[in-house]
Nucleic acid binder design. Structure first.
Length: 652
RNA sequence: GCCACCCUAGCUCAACUGGUAGAGCACCCGACUUGUAAUCGGAAGGUUGUCGGUUCAAUUCCGAUGGGUGGCUCCA
């Protein structure tokens, strides 16, 4: 057999040769440095026989694929370490069942079914054993078994591996990797690839957390324990990652929400039901005002709807049979059931229906800051990001089928405007499509409705040139959706808003309009939320800015610090003057030193600190200390007000 | 909801293997009147999330329950 090298050179190899053999044939230096290879575009390790005639590139520790190899091998090293831990505790090795242990971004995990629960305090012990295994430099071996042999190996011992083998397509090679020997080692069913020995693993790894995980991601199946680890090729990368995690904790909106007095969640009110404190409420109101203005400009009309509704409404909408479990239990009144409103759509549909509609009324854009209550699973609640009560920046656009693309274009343009104003540039769309093959009970069958809807959204995306990806199987039961994906300053991806095309529910509600020819036609509905929910957007924005809000959004724009008590009167005058000009200033009149007041204002992330002493009082001026600006400036009160108003108006 | 862990004053944290709760900051009071990130002193503040058990004795050990954290599942 042979292989073709990147320079086109032909390399003769003996049958069954591995990348290790190929590297050795090229040269002793490479043989030593090699850690794997790319053969026909696929990552091979040094242990797996190469395909004949492969286009071959030998990899060394310099190549990015190295990380994949050592992370994967680390998963096995961890499995061996966990087994040893339990063996020391008197269990048989096979009582520790190992489900799957893949490579993930930044690291690896292994799902384990242990004879007694793995505890958090076990992680350092496991990690220590892992380091011993790495230090022992155990060589890895790869071998292949027939299906029968492989199944026999796990028969009656490990239902997980048995299931994995049974699910492998017939004809697929069943490979195993063994590190070390029977006495000190570990063998696992594994597709590979791996490093040739545990000693090639860089020592920059760490076990980070212990979590539950359902076998095969299915909540009806047993829950295993998952140990997560991170691993990097260098100390710098590891430290950088840890620093990022630390920074993420510092910016966590729950932490900032407490530190900056923005919101709180009281047990007595109920979990997932946040209370907005005055400063947080102020910012939220600014967001609402902002959207109100924007949406007016874009031809939306505001409505109000009640917070509870008769159960029949949700039967009509089709939500109740599917989503009852995600709604708060009904309230029984006068023999009828009422539900807390979990979505605004049906209410808006009835607003549409309240008067007959002509094609001239379309597109009709109904809009509401709608407060919703959803009975989210308790384990999923997180601050404002995932709450049980929240307020959507919701709208429903009713239009004819011909108008769908245009309306979607307008929605995308509105997104661009709003997100630009908030300095958010790292976002993109995700077109969520149905999966008729795997989930026919949710999506039904492919028909013209689906085809037209998807085509209309695609056309809008292409005409606006919006960045987008596609997600199969993520559509709703009533149509495809266009989610807005956002990346936080620390690289975490999240869905911040979702826009859905609905061609089923208008029909169920009997919505119609009279077209140009005098015929009745059913409109299409676009569900759209620019900021998603104010709560989630606020949480994202809080983390995005680390609480360093721009002047126009800051609840307190300036703190006035009189140097001594005799400047208090002038300070109050300045504050009054600013308030008269709709600027938000507070005088810090506490019996504290000036330095302490400045420090507190900085910690509260107040954009401007105005220091007033004899000089300023005499000149009718203020000394301006601006956050993140080194030099202080002295301005007249008038100049300051003018400058601040200018910045507020331009939203800076 | 499921798995692991956590819960001590408003906040951040102490209290050797069970011996009966303490500090800093914040709040309040008083003194100081200061030029760009913490002035000094004092007072007050806790049934150690809740309920139950073991024990002569529980913040500490066990069980239940509530809330939280990290994940899994879910997210109309």
């Amino acid at each position: 057999m042979n292989a073709v090298l990147p320079d086109g050179r032909n390399l003769e190899l003996t049958p069954g040769a591995t990348a290790a053999d190929a590297a050795r044939a090229i040269g002793p230096g490479l043989a030593k440095a090699a850690i794997g290879a790319i053969a026909n575009g696929e990552l091979y390790d040094l242990l797996r026989p190469l395909p004949d005639g492969a286009e071959l590139r030998i990899l060394t520790e310099k190549d990015p694929e190295y990380a994949q190899l050592f992370r994967h091998t680390l998963a096995h090293v961890m499995a061996q370490a966990v087994r040893e831990l339990y063996t020391e505790r008197g269990f048989a090795p096979e009582q520790v069942r190992l489900a799957i242990g893949p490579v993930i971004e930044n690291g690896f995990y292994y799902d384990i079914d242990a004879p007694e629960p793995i505890r958090e305090e076990d992680l350092p012990l496991v990690e220590e054993k892992m380091r011993q295994i790495v230090a022992a430099n155990l060589p890895l071996k790869r071998f292949v078994l027939s299906r029968e042999e492989a199944l026999r190996r796990f028969e009656g011992l490990d239902p997980y591996k048995t299931e994995l083998i049974q699910d492998l397509p017939v004809g697929e090679e069943i490979s195993f990797y063994q590190q070390g020997d029977e006495r000190f080692g570990f063998t696992d069913l594994c597709r590979g690839p791996h490093l040739p020995s545990t000693g090639r693993i860089p020592p920059h790894f760490k076990l980070t957390s212990l979590a539950g995980a359902y076998w095969r991601g299915d909540s009806s199946r047993p829950m295993l324990q998952r140990i997560y680890g991170i691993a990097f090729r260098s100390r710098e990368e590891l430290d950088n990652y840890l620093w990022q995690q630390e920074e993420a904790r510092r910016r966590d909106h729950r932490k900032l929400g407490a530190e900056l007095d923005l919101f709180t969640i009281a047990e007595e009110v109920g979990k997932g039901l946040p209370l907005w404190l005055p400063r947080g409420a102020f910012i939220r109101r600014q967001l609402e005002n902002y959207m109100y203005e924007k949406e007016q400009e874009h031809g939306y009309q505001y409505v109000y709807t009640p917070h509870i509704a008769n159960a029949r409404l949700y039967y009509t909408s089709g939500h109740l049979p599917y989503y009852a479990e995600d709604m708060y239990a009904p309230i029984e009144i006068e023999g009828e059931e009422y539900y807390l409103k979990p979505m605004n759509c049906p209410h808006h549909h009835l607003i549409y229906k309240a008067r007959p509609k002509s094609y001239r009324d379309l597109p009709l854009r109904l809009c509401e800051f709608g407060t919703l209550y959803r009975f989210e699973l308790s384990g999923t609640l997180t601050g404002l990001t995932r709450a049980r009560g929240f307020t959507q920046n919701d709208a429903h656009i009713y239009c004819s089928r011909r108008q769908v693309t245009d309306e979607f274009i307008k929605v995308i343009q509105l997104f661009d405007e709003v997100y630009r104003d908030f300095g958010i540039s790292d976002y993109w769309f995700r077109l969520s499509l149905p999966d008729f093959e795997h989930n026919p009970e949710k999506f039904g069958v492919e028909n013209d409705n689906w085809r037209d809807a998807i085509a209309a959204i695609r056309a809008a995306l292409e005409q606006t040139g919006a960045k987008y990806v596609e997600g199969i199987g993520e559509a709703t039961f009533y149509g495809p959706k266009l989610d807005v994906q956002i990346r936080s300053v620390l690289g975490k991806e999240d869905t911040i808003a979702t826009n859905q095309l609905d061609f089923i529910v208008p029909e169920r509600f009997g919505l119609e309009f009279t077209n140009e020819r005098g015929e009745k036609e059913t409109p299409v509905c676009i569900h759209r939320a620019i900021m998603g929910s104010f709560d989630r957007f606020f949480a994202f924005y809080l983390e995005h800015t680390a609480g360093d809000f721009p002047l126009w959004l800051s609840p307190i724009q300036a703190v006035i610090v009189p140097i001594s008590d005799r400047h208090l009167e002038y300070a109050n005058q300045v504050a009054a003057e600013m308030r008269k000009n709709k600027l938000r200033a507070e005088v810090d009149s506490r019996p504290e030193r000036m330095n302490a007041k400045i420090r507190d204002a900085e910690l509260q992330k107040i954009p401007l600190v105005l220091v007033l002493g004899d000089k300023e009082a005499e000149a009718g001026a203020v000394n301006v200390r601006e956050r993140h600006v080194k030099e202080q400036r002295t301005l007249s009160v008038g100049e300051l007000i003018g400058e601040m108003k200018g910045r507020v108006n331009s939203r800076k």
